[in-house]
């Protein structure tokens, strides 16, 4: 079980290998990695991710606890970066381990849906033309209704 909020880069491959090695009895491991997307015209200089340090860890641990209450999970990993990210940088990852494939998939989707709109992070896209805060999407809010 781990929730990590960090500025430093991480390697999703290495993290997944370690997570999988620790989940020997589970049988099913699902992971998702979020990658910084370039602007459509390739103009992204960097993405700035701001967060609410006093709240972030607690909010992510609550999201993990909610997932564990709903699915039989053997382990959960959540990593989310803040600070300056360039196109192709890994922003975040989640991994779930369970004896049941469906539980591992569903819990990973649940974690992602809640991370999108209930974890205190804000993204700002900085291009040559200026900087804009990324707006939340209605569909991200609606995605919570299915749970």
């Amino acid at each position: 079980m781990a929730v990590r909020v960090q500025e430093a880069p991480f390697g999703a491959g290495d993290e997944l290998d370690k997570f999988t090695a620790g989940a020997a009895g589970s049988g099913a491991v699902v992971s998702f990695t979020g990658v910084t997307r370039d602007a459509e015209d390739g103009s992204l200089d960097h993405m700035l991710i701001e967060h609410y340090p006093a709240m972030t860890q607690k909010a992510l641990e609550q999201i993990e606890a909610d997932a564990r209450a709903r699915w039989p999970l053997d382990d959960v990993l959540i990593i989310h970066r803040f600070g300056v990210l360039r196109a192709q940088d890994q922003i975040m990852m989640v991994a779930t381990a369970s004896r049941h494939r469906v539980a591992a998939f569903e819990a990973a989707e649940f974690l992602m849906d809640y991370l999108k709109s209930r974890a205190p992070f804000w993204k700002k896209e900085v291009t040559q033309d200026g900087a804009d805060w990324v707006a939340s999407k209605d569909e991200d809010e609606q995605a919570l209704n299915r749970w």
């Binding site: 609410y52 709240m55 922003i91 991370l115 205190p120 804000w122 805060w133 990324v134």
Partner: peptide, 12 residues
């Protein structure tokens, strides 16, 4: 002891 104001969150 603390109140925070912010736009809708854009994590993930």
């Amino acid at each position: 002891s603390e109140v925070a104001f912010f736009p809708p969150m854009t994590g993930g």
